[in-house]
């Protein structure tokens, strides 16, 4: 379907793909290897590409030094709830933006685009004061609410693409059958949209999981910190302990890696159905 490939073309393709794979995977391999070296060996020279002795010392250190389990739990809760709620809310707005024409539509879409241009640091101070007034500083709910707001604009635009690719006829038929628009949305569109929804949720989850500056600003006590905040703490106080740092990095990457391994097909599939056609 894409045309026949010449032998030379095939060779170029394979070489390129292999090189890129090596380039992509190597940093991950290196951080894993670093984390598995005994703390003293990390700074031995020449560098060992395969450690002579494997050691879990860095991981032990990590959980001794800091309550890493708590950070992981916090991140998991915040990213899951915020990601799910943002996806749900964005479906509603995306649906309206895909199916109706109305005067304020382009203004709303512009407003969504502009949110992407706002540097977080202009809003951090006032946001902290706002959250203080709402008694939501140093509180997971507070961070969730803010993350939902952060996720909504891009998520809406993304889901709008999916809705536009689904023929109107589908829900019209359902509405003729006597369903309300809301039920039509859920009964008919939801199943069709599943890959898109999964993709949208993963985007939201990953964004929330990785967010640093808002979390550093809004979370104070150890019990409420998320993983990036904790990582940031490792690097800037005490000494840069590359051993436990690498162990922490591995733990940070793991959940999203599992998610990606499980859903990478959904992401492309989801995006394909939502791709803007030209």
């Amino acid at each position: 379907m894409i045309g026949k490939e010449t032998a030379a073309g095939r060779a170029v393709r394979i070489v390129f793909l292999v090189l890129w794979l090596a380039f992509t995977v190597f940093p991950l391999y290196w951080i894993l290897i670093t984390s598995l070296k005994a703390p003293g060996d990390i700074f031995s020279f020449p560098l060992a590409y395969w450690p002579e002795h494997f050691s879990l010392e860095n991981y032990r250190e990590l959980f001794n030094k800091a309550d890493f389990g708590t950070y992981l739990t916090n991140s998991l809760i915040v990213a899951t709830v915020a990601g799910a709620v943002a996806t749900a809310i964005s479906m509603l707005s995306a649906y309206v933006l895909a199916r109706f024409e109305f005067r304020t539509k382009s203004a709303l879409l512009t407003a969504a685009l502009v949110t992407q241009m706002i540097p977080a640091f202009i809003a951090l101070g006032p946001l902290y004061l706002l959250m203080t007034d709402l008694k939501l500083v140093d509180n997971r709910l507070g961070l969730i609410l803010v993350y939902i707001a952060v996720c909504i604009p891009f998520c809406t635009v993304m889901l709008r693409g999916f809705f536009e690719n689904i023929p109107d006829a589908l829900e019209e038929a359902a509405m003729i059958d006597g369903l309300s628009r809301f039920s039509a949305l859920f009964r008919v569109l939801l199943p069709v949209m599943r890959p898109g929804i999964v993709a949208a949720f993963i985007f939201n989850f990953v964004n929330c999981w990785n967010e640093l500056f808002l979390s550093v600003t809004l979370m104070n006590s150890d019990a409420n910190k998320t993983v990036p905040t904790a990582l940031n703490g490792f690097i800037s106080s005490f000494n840069i302990d590359w051993g436990s740092m690498s162990a922490a990095a591995v733990f940070t990457i793991l959940p999203t890696m599992v998610l990606f391994a499980f859903a990478s097909r959904h992401i492309v599939q989801g995006l394909t159905s939502g791709a803007v056609k030209g």
């Binding site: 203080t132 150890d222 940031n232 703490g233 690097i235 106080s237």
Partner: peptide, 24 residues
């Protein structure tokens, strides 16, 4: 007593923010 331990490099900034908000 609830001890709050921000990373050193941002700690003073964080404290300023908390002090400015007047509570916490």
């Amino acid at each position: 007593v609830n001890l709050i331990s921000p990373p050193t490099e941002q700690a003073d900034q964080k404290i300023q923010q908390m002090l400015q908000s007047g509570s916490g």
